[in-house]
Simulated assay, not measured.
Amino acid sequence: MNVPRRPSHRVAMVAAVATAVLVVTGCGGNSSKSGGSPSTTTTQASPTASPSASAPAGQHNQADVTFAQGMIPHHRQAIVMADMAEQHASSSDVKALAQKIKKAQTPEIETMTTWLKSWGEAVPQGMGGMGHGNASATPGMDMGMGMGMMSDHDMDQLKGATGNAFDTMFLTMMIKHHEGAVEMANTEKQQGAYGPAKEMAGNIVTSQTAEITQMRKMLGTASPSATATP
């Protein structure tokens, strides 16, 4: 008869439903865990998403500021002298050297100006205490003076010279000027903290020491620069 079989059928159905409920509950638990997993991953990844927060690339000290504030007017005067050479020099070698100096130092002025602005420091105006109506009104902007900088009288004499006399005067003055720049750059290499500034200082020492040697040869008085250091 079919009556005894009905209870067995019902028991089987109940067991099947219970199993299904357990399976669904288990899946729900796994889903919750997996849902929490992305949150944990995101939290762990967030510190590496902004490495600049602890990067020391922007750190600088007073030596870096002094280097930039002193070298900007120093470079500006070298460019003024180079412009004079293009107009008054008789030697093509002197003119070529003047163009090389101007090409190298103009972008360095722009770079150092950017540094000072980003640091919130004053940017020297003109040639910083050199006169000619360009003296800086900010204290400390003339730290480049004495480091091979020419006086107003020197610049007027150079401007008034022509031909071979100009060439000799230009080379003599520019050697002194470069020696001052090398001394300033060596100080930055030793005392500075800002990587790009120290790198620029190293480039100045290398390039201007080589130019000093070149100019001494052009004058016939070749000798190593006393201010250059390895």
Rank of each mutant, 00 (worst) to 15 (best):
M1S: 09
M1G: 11
M1A: 09
N2A: 11
R5H: 04
P7C: 02
H9W: 12
R10P: 00
A12Q: 15
M13G: 01
A15G: 12
A15E: 10
A16S: 10
T19Q: 05
V21M: 07
V24E: 00
T25Y: 12
C27S: 03
G28C: 07
N30I: 15
S31H: 03
K33D: 07
G36S: 08
S37Q: 13
T40A: 15
T42D: 04
Q44N: 03
S50E: 04
S52V: 12
S54K: 07
P56L: 11
A57I: 14
G58I: 02
G58A: 13
Q59K: 11
Q62E: 15
A63V: 11
A63F: 13
V65I: 14
T66E: 12
Q69P: 01
M71E: 02
I72D: 01
H75K: 07
H75C: 09
R76E: 06
R76P: 01
V80I: 11
M81V: 06
A82F: 06
M84F: 13
A85Q: 06
E86A: 13
E86V: 10
E86Y: 01
E86P: 00
Q87C: 00
H88Y: 08
D93I: 03
D93M: 06
V94W: 10
K100S: 15
K100A: 10
I101G: 01
K102P: 00
K102T: 05
Q105P: 07
Q105L: 12
Q105M: 09
P107Q: 11
E108V: 09
I109C: 01
T113M: 08
W115R: 06
W115C: 04
L116G: 08
K117G: 03
S118D: 14
W119K: 03
G120E: 03
A122Q: 10
V123L: 07
P124V: 07
Q125N: 13
G126N: 09
G126S: 11
G128H: 10
G133I: 06
S136A: 12
T138G: 00
P139H: 01
D142I: 00
D142E: 12
G144K: 00
G144F: 04
M149V: 07
M149T: 15
S151N: 11
D152W: 00
H153K: 15
H153E: 15
D154P: 04
D154G: 05
M155N: 06
Q157F: 07
T162I: 01
N164V: 14
D167S: 06
D167Q: 05
T168H: 11
M169R: 05
L171F: 10
I175D: 02
I175G: 04
K176L: 08
H177M: 13
M184Y: 08
A185L: 05
T187F: 02
T187E: 05
T187M: 10
K189A: 08
Q191I: 04
Q191K: 14
A193F: 01
Y194K: 04
P196I: 11
P196W: 08
N203L: 07
N203P: 00
I204W: 08
V205A: 02
V205P: 02
V205E: 10
T206Q: 09
S207N: 15
A210R: 06
A210E: 03
I212W: 07
T213P: 00
Q214I: 09
M215D: 05
M215E: 11
R216L: 05
G220L: 07
S223P: 00
S225D: 14
S225Y: 05
A226D: 14
A226P: 06
T227N: 08
A228Y: 08
T229R: 13
T229Q: 15
P230K: 15
